[in-house]
Nucleic acid binder design. Structure first.
Length: 866
RNA sequence: GCGGACGUGGCGGAACUGGUAUACGCGUACGUCUCAGAAGCGUAUGGAGCAAUCCUUGAGGGUUCGAGUCCCUCCGUCCGCACCA
């Protein structure tokens, strides 16, 4: 017998799969479809990282199993190739990004093919291919035509190192997500996508889909819906010079606490906007505003930041009780949130409390609830700690501490929701949530406020001033703008667009890729390209020179996979319906999507949200068949270096996949990646573990010699086999690959102690084949099969075949295991109990006492209580 | 601060709806093969003890015949958001 030589057999099978197009799929109405998706890689110059194979192998295992179960499986691959690293490389070396990208894709392709993935390579896409980005541009134009893309002059996050504008989502703690440089604010004209118009739909859609909880929760938090009210506070006459001469609008989620508002706090941004339009504020106020705005940009960690502020001297009237309260400018109210102004309720908001304490502003309790009376803490015995006397010093009609305690105890009012409103006129005695509703109604009736839903989500900054991205297919024509030939949607001149049949608008070849400090894209210097004819009137016009962010191409790639060669549409509806539509006969319209999408947690906010937005929009205009793009979303953990740290060149703990494949073989590498640890958790690389998996494969290889038709096959053997079929099947479905492999090892260990029948060895190979495909193909062929194992049927288990000759019953005395007995499986409860009591060991522990109680768990154990 | 995940041998990690904790792998020790080493193969391997037996799932308490699993308090690690009103 030849020994196991991975190098030889892996090349052979890879060539054969390619030649026979084993994994190419076509739509086939007779077969159930299954669409498995992984996040397509960015083809960096460094080549494949060991992080890549983890999700790729996992979905490959699932895809291979699904194929064997009779599904028509689409498992596609492509490249998300626009982006900064390639552009920066081009700047450094002067080589054209398109060329560099081609080379990188070739490297990635070779590496991915060497790992034996069952991708349908004939459907491969490349986001930088004009035939692909033609449709990215087309979708953008659809958004524009539907009023969801607009140009806006606004402060943007500017990374001075990368010389690029960043979306809010790309700024982490005030720094550029990519390079870590502190971000500056700059005013720039930017293309925006109105994702906020889809905020509610994006939130609603999460109910339809099966995402792992952290992914769903992160999306919910990011969208950040909060229900409350906008309330008008009338400004007193001393502030005539204020632009908001009549009233100031605040947003609050707790209108029920309005009687406890003791001051109004406004953001420095709002104050600045007043100053710009002629507010005559004192020098002190002006200085404070300036200082706060400066600090905003510089401070990354706001945790430790001291609250500061200044009294503007303006008075506002609380509409609920007519009380006059001061307006302060503070650093803890943010410009972009709500209306940029709040009513401060120090008794029930920690931040307001901290501020009120510091500046000696009054604190008024209006809700009796243990956890929400600032400065007061109640322990389990109901004893109050803190200083309520200090709090209510300026308000005589608040309950005494004793009365409050009583209310809290009687109503079990721990949380704010359970609290009772006090000191609030017509709201007194109501539960906080009821009071909230009543107050909103009251505000609306009086015309001093209205119900309002607020979102954290901001519109998406969609333009980048860089070269290596999709050009925005827009043209500015002054003549047309003057003649108002285009419907007005933005603030400035409205550009016309390039007609569909003229797409794609190709990226021109430029000599220099450097971005400019003025913030213009390198395309702006291409006079020949920039100056063009207006597609409407044929007159002189200029092209838009901004490009799209790298999120654009990845927002719809899963759609293109369904019909990658289509020249007339981004994909035909018929094909989209086949691959994305729900196969369930009772499915509601719009239900379905990619059956299973696995990707990194780092993409659960941005990429996932953006592509859901595009898909929902495309659904609304009738271009795709489903509401939601992805039916099911899972995530993998990171692979850490052998030192337990994130792999990085500077740490020198990077593992090269090519090297591992060269040394141990692709199948061992794939199996080790799956065996390392729980799929959703971070795991440390340990090459010794890979050695162990390789040993396992050798062991399976050697089983060939033990095949004998005279081999015995006992019930115990049958048990092992059936349990393994069940466990491996179930575990793969639940992505518990590590335990599936452990079970295959157990079965192999069992088999290697005896002679085995060929059919049982074959079952083992079938179960192993998704993990180690080349290895199993080879052994399958050695057994004399002509057709490949990948075309075989997945084994079925039959629990009825598990026949126990005996069952093992554990006997516990007072909760401790004292005896283990083998009994016939037919034994009745009485038989088992009798046998247990009769046992010598049990008798010894009973010490002659009568058992109080005997519990029997069928087929498992007897528990005797003395 | 809020939200989420988690804490089990020397190490990575198993354990279904509460029912024999430590599966599987690594490492280690001994044996076998070998001129020798490596790789194989075999046996052992949570801790203490000669043994009977006792102890053991971050710490402490509770519920239960029975807790890694459920409840409470605390400690620690990782991730996400962050003065979001």
């Amino acid at each position: 017998m030849k020994s196991y030589n991975p190098k030889e057999i892996e090349k052979r099978w890879q060539r054969r799969w390619e030649k026979e197009k084993t994994f190419s799929v076509k739509e086939d109405a007779k077969k159930k479809k299954f669409y498995a998706l992984i996040e397509f890689p960015y083809p960096s110059g460094a080549g494949l990282h060991v992080g890549h194979p983890r999700p790729f192998t996992a979905m490959d295992v699932i895809s291979r199993k699904k194929r064997m179960e009779g599904y028509n499986v689409l498992y596609p691959i492509g490249f998300d190739a626009f982006g900064l690293p390639t552009e920066n490389y081009a700047i450094k070396t002067g080589r054209p990004p398109a060329k560099v990208t081609k080379e990188n894709i070739a490297t990635f392709t070779r590496q991915l093919k060497s790992l034996g993935y069952s991708f349908d390579w004939s459907r491969s896409v490349d986001t930088t291919d004009p035939e692909y980005y033609r449709w990215t541009q087309w979708i953008f134009l659809q958004l524009y035509k539907h009023g969801l893309a607009y140009k806006k002059n606004q402060p943007i996050n500017w990374c001075p190192k990368d010389k690029i504008g960043l979306a809010n989502e790309e700024v982490v703690q005030g720094c550029c997500e990519r390079c870590g440089t502190p971000v500056e604010q700059r005013n720039k004209e930017q293309w925006m996508l109105a994702i906020t118009k889809y905020a509610d739909k994006l939130l609603e859609g999460l109910k339809e889909v099966d995402y792992i909880a952290p992914a769903r929760i992160q999306q919910e938090n990011w969208i950040g819906r909060s229900e409350g009210a906008e309330v008008q506070f009338v400004i007193q006459s001393e502030a005539k010079d204020l632009p908001i001469s009549r009233s100031l609008t605040v947003f609050t989620t707790r209108p029920d606490t309005i009687f406890g508002a003791t001051f109004v706090a406004v953001s420095a941004e709002l104050a600045q906007s007043w100053l710009k339009v002629g507010w005559q504020a004192s020098e002190k106020v002006k200085k404070n505003v300036e200082a706060t705005l400066k600090e905003r940009v510089a401070t990354a960690d706001r945790d430790e930041q001291e609250k500061t502020g200044v009294d503007t001297g303006i008075k506002a009237v609380n509409p609920a009780n007519g009380e006059e309260i001061p307006v302060w400018v503070t650093n803890y109210v943010m410009g972009g949130v709500g209306t940029g102004a709040i009513m401060a309720v120090p008794a029930h908001d920690e931040r307001d409390y901290e501020f009120a304490k510091k500046f000696g502003l009054p604190i008024k309790i209006v809700i009796c609830a243990a956890k929400h009376v600032s400065g007061l803490k109640f322990d389990k015995n109901g004893t109050a700690h803190g200083s309520i006397d200090e709090l209510n010093a300026s308000y005589s009609d608040v309950y005494t501490p004793e009365e409050m305690l009583k209310i809290i105890e009687e109503n079990g009012a721990e949380e704010l929701e359970d609290g009772l409103v006090c000191n609030s006129a017509f709201l007194n005695g109501l539960k906080a949530l009821e009071a909230k509703e009543k107050m909103i109604q009251w505000l609306e009736e009086k015309g001093v406020g209205k119900r309002k839903v607020n979102f954290k989500l901001r519109d998406w900054v969609f333009s980048r001033q860089r070269y290596w991205g999709e050009p925005l297919p827009l043209v500015f024509c002054e003549a047309c703008a003057k003649n108002k030939k285009f419907e007005s949607k933005g603030e400035e001149m409205n550009p016309g667009w390039i007609p569909d049949e003229k797409l794609p608008l190709k990226l021109p070849k430029v000599a220099k890729y450097e971005p400019t400090d003025t913030g213009e894209s390198p395309l702006a210097a291409m006079e020949k390209w920039v100056n063009t004819r207006c597609p409407r009137c044929g007159g002189k016009a200029r092209r838009e020179t901004d490009t799209m962010p790298n999120w654009a191409g990845s927002s719809w790639y899963f759609l293109r996979y369904c019909d990658p060669k289509n020249k007339k549409e981004f994909a035909s509806m018929k094909k989209l319906k086949y691959w994305l539509g729900s196969p369930k006969p009772d499915a509601k319209p719009g239900e379905g999507g990619v059956d299973w999408y696995n990707g990194g947690m780092e993409h659960t906010v941005l990429h996932l949200l953006y592509s859901r937005f595009w898909n929902q929009f495309l659904f609304d205009i009738g271009a795709v068949p489903t509401h939601e793009p992805y039916k099911k979303r899972t995530s993998h953990g990171m692979i850490l270096g052998p030192d337990g740290e994130k792999m990085s060149k500077s740490r020198g703990n990077v593992i090269n996949p090519d090297e591992m494949v060269e040394k141990f073989g692709t199948d061992a590498f794939r199996m080790y990646i799956m065996f390392m640890g729980p799929f959703d958790q971070a795991v440390m690389w340990d090459t010794n573990g890979l050695v162990g998996v390789r040993r396992f494969l050798d062991k399976v290889w050697n089983l060939q010699e033990k095949i004998s038709e005279n081999a015995t096959f006992s019930n115990i053997d049958e048990n092992h086999l059936q349990t393994t079929v069940k466990k491996v099947s179930d575990d793969i479905d639940q992505m518990k690959f590590n335990t599936a492999i452990a079970q295959l090892m157990t079965l192999t260990n069992h088999f290697s102690k005896k002679n085995i029948k060929r059919v049982h060895f074959e079952t083992l190979l079938l179960l192993l084949s998704p993990f180690a495909p080349h290895f199993c193909e080879e052994l399958w062929e050695n057994l004399g099969h002509n057709s490949p194992i990948s075309k075989e049927t997945w084994p079925q288990y039959d629990l009825n075949k598990i026949k126990n000759q005996s069952m093992t019953i554990v006997v516990q005395v007072n909760g401790k295991v004292r005896e283990e007995m083998g009994l016939v499986p037919e034994a009745s409860e009485e038989d088992v109990k009798q046998a247990a009591l009769a046992s010598e060991k049990v008798q010894k522990w009973l010490e002659g006492k009568e058992p109080k109680k005997i519990i029997y768990v069928k087929g498992k154990l007897v528990s005797i209580v003395v």
